[in-house]
Every structure is written in C-alpha cells, then in structure tokens.
Amino acid sequence: MNIQFNKGALELCVLALLDRTDRYGYELVQKISEQITISEGSVYPLLRRLKKEDYVSTYLQESSEGPSRKYYMLTDKGREYLRVIIPEWRQFSNGVNHLIREGVGDE
C-alpha cells in the first residue's frame, strides 16, 4: 500500500506514544515503523516541528550503553492537543471504515 497520507496521522502517532512515557527518537521511530511503513527519517523533521510548536520538549539523559540520548516529553500544551485530535481521528477512521463496509461489505 502506498498512499499519500497526512502527516497529521504521523503526528498523532508520535504524540500518542509520548503520552504515558518519555521516549528517545530512535525508540519512537522503531515503534512507529513496526506498524506503518514510513521513511523513518521523516520522524525527525516532525519532532523538530512539534518542539517548535511547544507540543513536546526535550532533555538529554545518560544511557547505560554509550552516549546520552535526547528524550522527548509531551508538554501540557501537547497533551491538550492530543486530547483534541484523538476523537477527531476516531471519527475520521470510523467514517472510512463505515464507507468500506457500505461499498465493499465485510470480508
């Protein structure tokens, strides 16, 4: 499957993954690419944008293996935004699923 999909979906994935725990970039990329094929590099531009928009903040933390890692943390503003876009996404995907059922039927 190869469709143009909105970066909003990727943005939602990143914010959702950060809701309960802070994560480093590599970890986020791995989690997402387990589910969706993306060019993994595009997560980093997205993270920079989310930081500029104050949805996430970053801090460095030492790791047991090797150099310190940059962790991403959801800000209050980011959490608020996430709470707004989750129902929007559900509504959207329900709509698409409904149309598929109507057009193609359950397979």
Partner: peptide
C-alpha cells in the same frame, strides 16, 4: 501541503 507525506501500511 507540506503536511502530506508519502507512506503506507505495512504488508
């Protein structure tokens, strides 16, 4: 427009 990205679901 800048928010449109190429990608898809895994097979």
């Amino acid at each position: 427009n800048a928010k449109l990205v190429k990608g898809g679901l895994k097979h």
